[in-house]
Lab assay of single mutants.
Amino acid sequence: VTLFVASYDYEARTEDDLSFHKGEKFQILNSSEGDWWEARSLTTGETGYIPSNYVAPV
């Protein structure tokens, strides 16, 4: 399981994006799509795309 933590807050801009807060942890589901990764929030359980430059490895 690949875990990352949010370095910043992010507000979703499309329905496919995932909003999150600094400190929130994610399981990365797919990182092969470039700068936007499909992730599941371990806080909310929601799945969506997050900007990879807003998160760091745990």
Rank of each mutant, 00 (worst) to 15 (best):
residue 1 V to A: 12
residue 40 R to F: 11
residue 35 D to C: 11
residue 25 K to D: 01
residue 57 P to F: 07
residue 11 E to L: 11
residue 33 E to P: 09
residue 15 E to P: 13
residue 41 S to W: 02
residue 24 E to N: 05
residue 50 I to Y: 00
residue 46 E to Q: 14
residue 46 E to Y: 09
residue 57 P to I: 08
residue 1 V to C: 15
residue 13 R to N: 09
residue 21 H to V: 14
residue 55 V to R: 02
residue 12 A to E: 03
residue 22 K to W: 04
residue 13 R to L: 11
residue 19 S to T: 09
residue 16 D to I: 13
residue 20 F to K: 00
residue 16 D to K: 15
residue 12 A to P: 04
residue 46 E to M: 14
residue 32 S to I: 10
residue 8 Y to H: 11
residue 57 P to G: 05
residue 4 F to D: 00
residue 19 S to H: 06
residue 1 V to L: 13
residue 32 S to Y: 10
residue 8 Y to W: 12
residue 44 T to L: 02
residue 24 E to M: 05
residue 56 A to R: 14
residue 24 E to W: 07
residue 41 S to R: 11
residue 16 D to C: 15
residue 34 G to K: 13
residue 49 Y to D: 02
residue 29 L to R: 03
residue 25 K to Q: 12
residue 28 I to F: 03
residue 26 F to Y: 01
residue 41 S to Y: 02
residue 53 N to I: 10
residue 14 T to R: 15
residue 14 T to P: 02
residue 19 S to E: 03
residue 42 L to W: 07
residue 12 A to R: 08
residue 9 D to R: 04
residue 29 L to Q: 05
residue 51 P to A: 04
residue 52 S to A: 13
residue 58 V to D: 10
residue 22 K to G: 04
residue 22 K to A: 11
residue 26 F to L: 09
residue 53 N to K: 13
residue 39 A to E: 02
residue 48 G to R: 00
residue 47 T to L: 07
residue 47 T to C: 11
residue 36 W to H: 06
residue 1 V to D: 13
residue 52 S to N: 06
residue 44 T to D: 03
residue 30 N to D: 12
residue 55 V to T: 04
residue 9 D to I: 02
residue 37 W to N: 01
residue 43 T to D: 11
residue 15 E to M: 10
residue 1 V to Q: 12
residue 58 V to R: 01
residue 2 T to S: 11
residue 51 P to G: 03
residue 26 F to C: 04
residue 45 G to D: 05
residue 51 P to V: 02
residue 8 Y to L: 10
residue 27 Q to F: 13
residue 5 V to D: 02
residue 45 G to N: 08
residue 42 L to H: 05
residue 47 T to I: 14
residue 54 Y to T: 06
residue 35 D to W: 09
residue 46 E to I: 10
residue 39 A to C: 05
residue 47 T to N: 05
residue 33 E to M: 14
residue 42 L to Q: 07
residue 38 E to M: 15
residue 35 D to V: 08
residue 10 Y to E: 00
residue 26 F to P: 01
residue 4 F to M: 09
residue 6 A to D: 01
residue 44 T to N: 06
residue 56 A to C: 14
residue 11 E to Q: 12
residue 35 D to F: 13
residue 34 G to Y: 09
residue 19 S to K: 04
residue 18 L to I: 10
residue 11 E to R: 08
residue 11 E to A: 11
residue 32 S to L: 11
residue 7 S to N: 14
residue 2 T to H: 11
residue 33 E to T: 12
residue 19 S to V: 02
residue 15 E to K: 13
residue 23 G to T: 02
residue 54 Y to D: 03
residue 4 F to P: 00
residue 12 A to L: 02
residue 35 D to Y: 13
residue 7 S to K: 15
residue 39 A to Y: 03
residue 29 L to Y: 06
residue 49 Y to Q: 08
residue 56 A to V: 15
residue 2 T to E: 11
residue 33 E to H: 14
residue 48 G to I: 04
residue 25 K to C: 12
residue 4 F to C: 09
residue 23 G to D: 05
residue 56 A to E: 14
residue 35 D to L: 11
residue 56 A to L: 13
residue 58 V to N: 06
residue 31 S to C: 15
residue 48 G to E: 01
residue 52 S to F: 07
residue 22 K to L: 06
residue 8 Y to S: 10
residue 39 A to F: 03
residue 20 F to D: 00
residue 54 Y to M: 13
residue 8 Y to R: 13
residue 4 F to R: 01
residue 25 K to V: 15
residue 7 S to H: 14
residue 41 S to L: 07
residue 40 R to N: 05
residue 44 T to W: 03
residue 3 L to S: 05
residue 30 N to E: 07
residue 31 S to G: 09
residue 50 I to Q: 00
residue 45 G to Q: 06
residue 50 I to W: 00
residue 34 G to A: 13
residue 47 T to E: 08
residue 40 R to Q: 11
residue 28 I to Q: 01
residue 16 D to N: 15
residue 18 L to F: 08
residue 1 V to M: 13
residue 13 R to Y: 07
residue 17 D to W: 11
residue 3 L to T: 09
residue 24 E to D: 14
residue 56 A to N: 10
residue 47 T to H: 07
residue 7 S to R: 15
residue 27 Q to L: 14
residue 8 Y to T: 09
residue 33 E to S: 13
residue 30 N to H: 08
residue 19 S to L: 01
residue 13 R to K: 12
residue 55 V to P: 03
residue 51 P to I: 03
residue 45 G to T: 02
residue 38 E to I: 15
residue 37 W to A: 01
residue 22 K to N: 04
residue 37 W to G: 01
residue 26 F to S: 00
residue 8 Y to E: 10
residue 5 V to G: 02
residue 54 Y to S: 12
residue 51 P to W: 07
residue 16 D to F: 15
residue 55 V to A: 05
residue 42 L to M: 11
residue 13 R to S: 10
residue 18 L to M: 13
residue 52 S to P: 07
residue 53 N to M: 12
residue 51 P to M: 06
residue 20 F to M: 09
residue 10 Y to P: 01
residue 11 E to Y: 10
residue 17 D to Y: 14
residue 34 G to P: 15
residue 30 N to L: 07
residue 50 I to S: 00
residue 32 S to H: 10
residue 11 E to P: 04
residue 9 D to Q: 05
residue 52 S to C: 12
residue 50 I to E: 00
residue 25 K to W: 13
residue 33 E to G: 13
residue 36 W to C: 08
residue 48 G to Q: 01
residue 53 N to P: 06
residue 38 E to S: 07
residue 35 D to I: 09
residue 57 P to R: 06
residue 1 V to Y: 14
residue 43 T to P: 00
residue 5 V to W: 05
residue 7 S to F: 14
residue 18 L to Y: 04
residue 7 S to A: 13
residue 32 S to W: 10
residue 27 Q to E: 14
residue 28 I to Y: 01
residue 5 V to F: 06
residue 53 N to E: 10
residue 51 P to S: 05
residue 34 G to L: 11
residue 49 Y to C: 11
residue 46 E to T: 07
residue 55 V to M: 10
residue 40 R to C: 10
residue 29 L to H: 04
residue 26 F to W: 01
residue 28 I to N: 01
residue 37 W to V: 05
residue 48 G to V: 03
residue 5 V to L: 06
residue 51 P to D: 05
residue 18 L to G: 00
residue 23 G to P: 01
residue 39 A to V: 14
residue 19 S to R: 04
residue 27 Q to C: 13
residue 15 E to A: 13
residue 43 T to E: 14
residue 53 N to F: 10
residue 35 D to A: 09
residue 5 V to P: 00
residue 56 A to G: 08
residue 26 F to K: 00
residue 4 F to E: 01
residue 44 T to Y: 02
residue 57 P to V: 08
residue 44 T to I: 00
residue 37 W to K: 01
residue 16 D to L: 14
residue 39 A to L: 02
residue 15 E to G: 13
residue 20 F to S: 01
residue 23 G to K: 01
residue 25 K to F: 15
residue 30 N to C: 08
residue 35 D to G: 11
residue 26 F to E: 00
residue 1 V to H: 13
residue 33 E to Q: 14
residue 16 D to S: 14
residue 44 T to H: 04
residue 7 S to T: 15
